[in-house]
Write a protein that binds this DNA or RNA. Structure first.
Lengths: 121, 121
DNA sequence: CGGCATCCAATTCGATACTG
DNA sequence: CAGTATCGAATTGGATGCCG
C-alpha cells in the first residue's frame, strides 16, 4: 500500500513535469493563439495581426522568433515587392495540434460559462 | 468553390475563437500548472507551493482566487489549528483534464527536443 | 509589407516582511 | 499554515518613426 502510494506520487509527478515542459515551450501570452492561427494555413505577418485580435506587432514579432528558435514555426521571405513573409508550422509544430484541438473543443463546449465567467469580472 | 473557401474560413475562425475563450479562462502564467497539480488530488496551499516549483505565494493566491471565481476550483477551510485550507477541482474544472492530458502527453513525447530547445536559449 | 528602435505607460511578477 | 501588504523588477503594450 505504501508502494501503491509511491507509484501514485510518481505518476502524478511525471505528469506534472510533462505539463511544465509543455508550458515552458508555450510560455508567453500569445504562443498558443499564434499556433492555433497557423494550424490551418500558413499566414503572413499582417494576417496574423488581424487574426489574433489584441496582439501588438512588437509582441507578435517577438513570440514568432521564439517559436522559430524552438523549431515550431518557419519563416519564409518571398521575393515580392513589397516583401512578403509567410509563417508556417513545422511538422514538429503540427504535433501540437491535439493540444490546440482539445482547447478549441473545451472552448466551444463551455462558451456560455466562459461568457458568464467574464461577466463576473 | 468560393463557398467552400468561405466555409473553410468560418471553421478556422470558430476554432480560433474557441481557443481564445479557453485561453481567457486559463490566462496568467500559472493556471494550467495549478489545474494540472490538482487534477489527481485535492491539495493544500503549501502542497501547491511545493508542487509548482517557482511560484510565489502571492501569485498562487491570486490565481487560485481567479480560478475559484470562474468556478474551476473550490476552496475549503478546515477547522484545525493552525488552519488548513484545501483546494479541489470542481466537476467543471475536471472537464479541463483532456486539455491537461494532451499537454502532458506532448511534454513526455518531446522532452528531448524541449531540453535541446531550452539549451538554445 | 514586415519589421526594428525608442520611449513611455500599464500590467504582471516576485522577494521580503508581516499577520491571524 | 495560509495568506496579505508592500515595494521593486520584469514583462507587456502602445505610439511613433525609420528602413529595406
Amino acid at each position: 500500500m505504501a508502494e501503491k502510494e509511491n507509484l501514485d506520487k510518481a505518476v502524478c509527478s511525471v505528469h506534472h513535469m510533462a505539463v511544465r515542459d509543455t508550458m515552458d515551450i508555450l510560455n508567453g501570452k500569445w504562443k498558443i493563439r499564434i499556433i492555433a492561427s497557423l494550424s490551418f494555413h500558413k499566414k503572413r505577418f499582417m494576417e496574423l495581426i488581424a487574426d489574433i485580435d489584441g496582439i501588438a506587432a512588437k509582441m507578435l514579432s517577438k513570440e514568432l522568433q521564439e517559436l522559430e528558435m524552438n523549431g515550431l514555426v518557419t519563416r519564409s521571405v518571398l521575393n515580392t515587392k513589397p516583401i512578403t513573409v509567410e509563417y508556417e508550422l513545422t511538422p514538429y509544430g503540427h504535433t501540437l495540434k491535439p493540444v490546440i484541438n482539445e482547447m478549441a473543443a473545451w472552448g466551444m463546449k463551455h462558451r456560455k460559462k466562459v461568457m458568464k465567467g467574464s461577466a463576473l469580472k
